[in-house]
Amino acid sequence: MSTQVLTGKDGKVKVGEDQIAYCDNWSMDLSQEAQEVLRLGTNWAGAQGGKKGASGSIGGSYSETETAVSAIVTSWLAEEEVRADIHLVQSATKEFAGPAVLSSFNISTPAAGKVTWSANFTFDGAPVEGAPVV
C-alpha cells in the first residue's frame, strides 16, 4: 500500500466564492466537551462526550487589492456580527466548509517586513467535509 503525505502547497482558503490569494496558512481545531460520569463501586471517574465544536484560524500576507480580505475588513467595520462562508481546502479532493463567525482579525505592520493579517473563526455548526468546488 502506498501512502502520500499531504503538503501545504495545495491548500487554500476561500471566503464565499473568492479565494484569498495571499493566505499562507490555515488551521482547524475540532473539540468536544468531556462530561464526567460517576460510577458506584470505583474510584475512577468515567467520561462521556458532549457538545462538539469547530474553530480555526487563517492568515497570510496583506494586499490592498485582495478582495476577500478587504471584504472581511469592510464587514468588520460596518456590521454588528461578522460572518463568512469559510472553505478550508486541504487538497484537490478535500475541503472543510461552512458558515462561520469571525471572532478576531489582526493586521500586523512591522517596520522592516511585510504586512500580514490573521483571523480567528468558529464554524456555526459542523463543517461539511467534501470535494472543493472549482
Rank of each mutant, 00 (worst) to 15 (best):
G41D: 00
N120D: 13
G49L: 11
D29H: 15
S57K: 07
F105G: 08
A92V: 01
I58R: 05
T116M: 10
K52H: 03
G53I: 08
C23V: 06
A21W: 01
N120C: 08
N25H: 11
D24W: 12
K94R: 14
S91P: 02
P99L: 15
F96T: 15
N25K: 12
T74R: 14
A34W: 14
G59H: 00
A100K: 00
N106W: 02
E81R: 12
E17G: 01
G60F: 13
P99E: 15
G46F: 07
Q32P: 00
R39G: 10
A21I: 12
V82D: 00
K52N: 09
V82G: 01
A119Q: 00
G41C: 07
T116F: 10
G125M: 02
V69E: 01
V101P: 08
S63K: 01
T116I: 12
A34E: 14
E66D: 15
G60H: 07
C23S: 03
V69K: 02
V82C: 03
E66N: 11
N120G: 08
Q90D: 14
A45L: 14
T93Q: 14
G60Q: 08
S104M: 05
W117K: 08
G16F: 03
K94P: 07
G49S: 09
T67E: 04
N120H: 10
D85Q: 15
G113L: 03
N120I: 11
Q35D: 10
G46M: 10
T65E: 09
V89C: 11
G50I: 04
G113K: 03
G125Y: 02
E95P: 12
A21E: 13
P110A: 10
T67R: 03
A97F: 05
E36Y: 02
S108M: 10
D124C: 08
A112S: 13
G60N: 08
S108V: 13
V37H: 00
Q19P: 02
L38T: 10
S108Y: 03
A111W: 05
P99Y: 12
G98I: 04
Y22D: 05
G56E: 02
R83Y: 09
A34T: 15
G113W: 02
I20N: 07
L40Q: 04
A34F: 15
E33L: 00
G113D: 05
M28L: 11
T93N: 11
G53Y: 05
Q35A: 10
I72C: 11
T109L: 13
S57G: 12
F105I: 09
T42H: 06
A54E: 08
E66V: 12
P99G: 12
S55E: 10
R83P: 07
T67V: 11
S91L: 06
S27I: 09
S75I: 01
G113R: 05
R83E: 10
